[in-house]
Design a protein around this nucleic acid. Sequence first.
DNA 1: TCCTTATGTACAA
DNA 2: TGTACCTAAGGAC
Length: 267
Amino acid sequence: MPEGHTIHRLALDYGRLTGPVRASSPQGKFSDAASLVDGAPLARTEAHGKHLFLGFRDSDWVHIHLGLFGKVTFGPVPAPPAADTVRLRLTDATSYVDLRGPTTCALINDAEKAAVHARLGPDPLRDDADPGLAYRRISRSRTTVAALLMDQKVVAGVGNVYRAEVLFRQRIDPYRAGRDITPAEWDAVWADLVALMHEGVRNNRIDTVRPEHTPEAMGRPPRVDDHGGEVYVYRRATLPCHLCGTEIRTADLASRNLFWCPGCQRS
DNA sequence: TCCTTATGTACAA
DNA sequence: TGTACCTAAGGAC
């Protein structure tokens, strides 16, 4: 499930399709657009935040956003019969890719694609990102830094896991106002996001625990966090903090679950 | 078998 | 702020 690292990884993985691809929409909701790109090579792929773009021909783009439930699965040909929840199936000579449950799957042109980029903030995973742009918004806002980090106009690609984990790693209280975040703190948050999210692309999962804090290093029994990666606070409510032992807290913030350690994260 | 939950976003009021 | 939307897994019965 998707934060920005998942989408950038998908851009790389979709990019391995070669030659003309067959496109279909077993579910039916994307049939017309699928028939328009059917038989064309997938010329390029790109990600910005949680948005994925598959480029066909000159200026045809399939714009994909996974939302909360979207999933992509890859497999070798011959592809099994597609379940009727598959929105888009792409197949080349050796593999198939199934997309199901996306919030968005639409055929768009260059201008429409540019409009998507225009409403997104800098993405820690893109070389063209300007973190100063994000800081200008943050430093003027009375909104909590926890909410600002989830706002895709401010930073593109950060979701509920990276938000909680980067604030823990930088020891920042999630309820602090954006305008109280210092330039040095923002520089550190941004650098941490760049490093964490690149590792996320490589490993295709979110790990945030520093080597010196792993259970082995701390002399504790090994653990498995139930979302696939090793983390400090995400979905660890009421469990003791790995570093200070304080109970991890959770609260609803803008209808998402926020997690933090009141011992380690100071205002 | 039903209910809850989830790494998300957009739109209405 | 609330609600709608998309899917699948896990837990309570």
